[in-house]
Nucleic acid binder design. Structure first.
Length: 348
DNA sequence: CACGCGTGGTT
DNA sequence: TAACCAAGCGT
């Protein structure tokens, strides 16, 4: 049990936050449903990117019961373009958990909140502190950066030891009288002042006690072990359009874009020539033209996609998982950005 | 517990 | 440009 003085941190941060914190729509009167929605949307996502999505979800699903009654397809469609689609699938699962397990009312403790799918330690702490005044400190990327700099901590934040130490420090610093504002203040400082690059130390309320600032180590903190390298993948999409419409199929399995729709896909270990594709498809298929190539960069993959214009053999039984869709049907299903952009360019 | 999961902004 | 990073989570 540390007895060092930690009060100054919150005492400097809270007034700054109340004057400079952004007026985000879920602040003010914090309704757990709206806060939960914002927290899930903002996982690994910037406020600027997530804000419009939050508004769409609140408009379409004003309460957790409304969301619980939705289909996965509709939730994915509303989520389209935001990435990390497991968040959308888990969002629906969690909404149904709240209705079934908690009679439609969000639970108010960390232990109960964390039972919800897609709600981990961070999100449970955020909801518990912001909506229910519980003394649970949040630790996100902002908190790692702020604490590493202010306290001059060189332990890698992406290590088991680091996660443990930063969590303990954040909990020690937490203002128990204002846990929600305190948590949001640290994150807001990290998002707007104590940023990864272009740090605004001159505007920082704790500059006077910041070890990294005093020792000129702002750019060296926080320490990270490193990121996993990316792999290249080659996607050959089959553009098949008949009088029945455009053929799409839904992605399944553990791969990317689970639950989203795309044209029939042949993945290869290297770029494919028209002849090679023809061999893969088999007799009767016509490879009419090689469409544009699109480079799509994900966090751990680089996808090089080619859209091939092909015609299946007459009277050939196509894969039953391939669905012929008219324009309205295509617009109604969720597609990855890569496919969304192709559809747009192709005028579909 | 190390890894995989999207997209977009910034440098 | 390639690299880095963002209000993390599930497995």
């Amino acid at each position: 049990m540390s007895t060092r003085n930690t009060r100054w941190f919150s005492q400097a941060l809270l007034p700054w936050y109340r004057e400079h914190g952004r007026a985000l729509p879920w602040r003010g009167k914090p309704d757990p449903y709206r806060v939960w929605l914002s927290e899930v949307i903002l996982q690994q996502t910037r406020v600027d990117q997530g804000l419009a999505y939050w508004q769409r979800f609140v408009d379409r699903f004003p309460g957790v019961q409304d969301l619980a009654a939705a289909t996965e397809g509709e939730v994915l469609k509303l989520w389209q373009g935001l990435g990390y689609y497991s968040r959308a699938r888990n969002l629906l699962v969690a909404a149904r958990q709240v209705v079934r397990d908690f009679r439609g009312t969000f639970p108010g403790t960390h232990a109960e909140l964390i039972t919800l799918k897609g709600v981990g330690d961070y999100t449970a702490s955020a909801i518990a502190s912001i909506c229910f005044g519980q003394p649970d400190a949040v630790v996100d990327g902002n908190v790692y950066r702020v604490l590493a700099r202010v306290f001059g901590i060189e332990i890698p934040v992406d290590s088991t030891e680091g996660r443990k130490r930063f969590k303990a420090l954040a909990q020690e610093l937490l203002d128990h009288d204002h846990p929600g504002d305190h948590n949001q203040a640290v994150m807001e400082l990290g998002a707007t002042v104590c940023t990864p690059k272009n740090v605004a130390c001159l505007l920082c309320p704790v500059q006077g006690r910041c070890i990294a600032f005093a020792s000129g180590r702002i750019d060296a903190l926080p320490v990270k072990k490193g990121v996993a390298k990316t792999r290249d993948r080659y996607f050959n999409y089959l553009h098949i359009r008949t009088s029945n419409g455009l053929y799409l199929r839904q992605r399944t399995g553990k791969d990317i874009w689970q639950g989203l729709w795309e044209p029939p896909l042949i993945e290869s270990g290297a770029p494919l020539t028209a002849k090679k594709l023809q061999e893969r498809l088999g007799p009767g298929w016509q490879v009419r033209s090689r469409g544009e190539e699109a480079k799509h960069v994900l966090s751990h993959q680089v996808i090089r996609a080619v859209f091939w214009d092909v015609t299946p053999p007459k009277r050939e039984k196509l894969d039953p998982g391939w669905k012929a869709m008219d324009a309205a049907a295509v617009r109604a299903v969720a597609v990855p950005r890569l496919i969304e952009q192709w559809l747009k360019r192709a005028g579909i």
